[in-house]
Write a protein that binds this DNA or RNA. Structure first.
Lengths: 231, 231
DNA sequence: TCAAAAGTGTTAAAGCTACACCCATGG
DNA sequence: CCATGGGTGTAGCTTTAACACTTTTGA
């Protein structure tokens, strides 16, 4: 974290120079999907003095998405599978000027909820209470973006385990979009899109017909569609 | 512009404080559409030592889109009609660390090309040569975004004069998308979308049937669709 | 044999693409 | 009267939405 001590600030002001360049704050909306326990879309919330999004600062010359990845990991103890920049805004906290660069991170359930990290809760997006209104704004926009991208990308990919049943995939979409979908139409669209391939195996889970297992054809991951190429 | 003079930097380093926070660079891809002279999508390019995008720095606590608007205006002499943030990245130039926040600005032809500003050229996007590879990357992504948004928003709105013929509107889309569109299908879609309203008037322009003039129903400007609410 | 989830087809409506001719005007 | 751009309709196809029953299994 880089900011000048108050007296230095005054010294520099007196000389007409500026230490008033912004501090960077990278904050991450880290999503994971609970398909088992109480099905819900959850985000990582850090509880220190109050509830906030995982956040931190970038090092000098560190690429911003490397920094966001590093912060997501160190703040939550979880390695994301997908990261995408969201939006940048200016914010003032206690006389300090921040430029807040927000990102979305995604991880599958097993990756996210198995790890136990002090101060980190994975909370249902419908119940999240964040102290900072900017954090709230970031979360709202992250949800808009995630829902929109579900329609024209393969972003759901990164919230599911490596193999899954058609019902699990549908439940994932339903949880994120927060509305029910028709089973037959859903399956048809998914199959037609060609992003799935059937594995040879089935999953037996209870006293009913076993479910075929699918995986994503990782060759055509289109999650990135409409974000710039990373350098 | 805020960066510390070298000797101050050393002083602060010596004391373990950091002046190494990034400098902000806001850069703007300012689009305008030439429908008359040589029809083309153009952007504002600033020529000082070499060709670059209009750019500048934010003031302390200035909201980033206010800053981008201010920079777009002061660098080009043109007031944009629409502004949207694009992407943020980290860059190093001559040992200085920049956080580059890019935006798209749009203005109609009359607004843009009537003004004459020293060092500013409005150049066809197909011919743009920019010294900085980051500027190039920003332009490429701006084009991707503009084209994509043409499909699901009313962003074209801001590149056209307040009233226009159906042919002009179609030409605008064709120029931006860089491919021909079917006249009848185009008209049908536009009318069906409900974003246009016919004015009572026609335009007589040459030895052929006069063209009906339309305007956008500003009540349903959906350009912003999928960008966060501005505070 | 029952309960529970998996899996499967059809129909109607809307939207998309491709395509060619007549209309109104000014010179 | 002719050259110029403005304006119009249809047919085939694809995509979407709505809708209910049969299959396979374990207990």
């Amino acid at each position: 974290m880089s900011h000048s001590a108050p007296h230095l600030s005054s010294i520099l002001h007196a000389q007409g120079a500026s230490v008033d360049g912004p501090d960077l704050r990278l904050c991450v909306v880290f999503f994971a999907l609970d398909l088992i326990d109480r099905p819900a879309l959850r985000i990582a919330v850090v509880n220190d003095v109050s509830s906030r999004l995982p956040a931190g600062s970038a090092f000098r010359l560190e690429p911003l998405d490397d920094a966001a990845r590093r912060i997501a990991r160190s703040e939550t103890g979880v390695s994301e599978q997908y990261l995408e920049q969201l939006y940048t805004m200016s914010q003032c906290v206690d006389e300090r000027w921040f430029v807040v660069i927000s990102s979305i991170a995604l991880a599958s359930q097993s990756t996210a909820f198995s790890t136990d990290h002090p101060r980190v809760d994975w909370v249902d997006v419908r119940d999240v209470a964040l102290a900072d209104p900017v954090d709230r704004e970031v979360l709202d926009y992250a949800l808009v973006r995630l829902r929109a991208k579900l329609g024209y990308t393969t972003i759901a990919f990164h919230l599911l385990p490596s193999t899954f049943t058609m019902s699990e995939l549908q439940r994932a979409y339903e949880i994120i979009l927060n509305r029910p979908l028709d089973k037959r139409n859903f399956r048809r669209r998914m199959v037609a899109s060609g992003i799935l391939e059937a594995t040879a195996t089935v999953r037996r889970a209870g006293s009913h017909r076993p479910a075929a297992l699918y995986r994503f054809r990782s060759s055509d991951d289109r999650s990135d569609y409409l974000t710039p190429r990373e350098h």
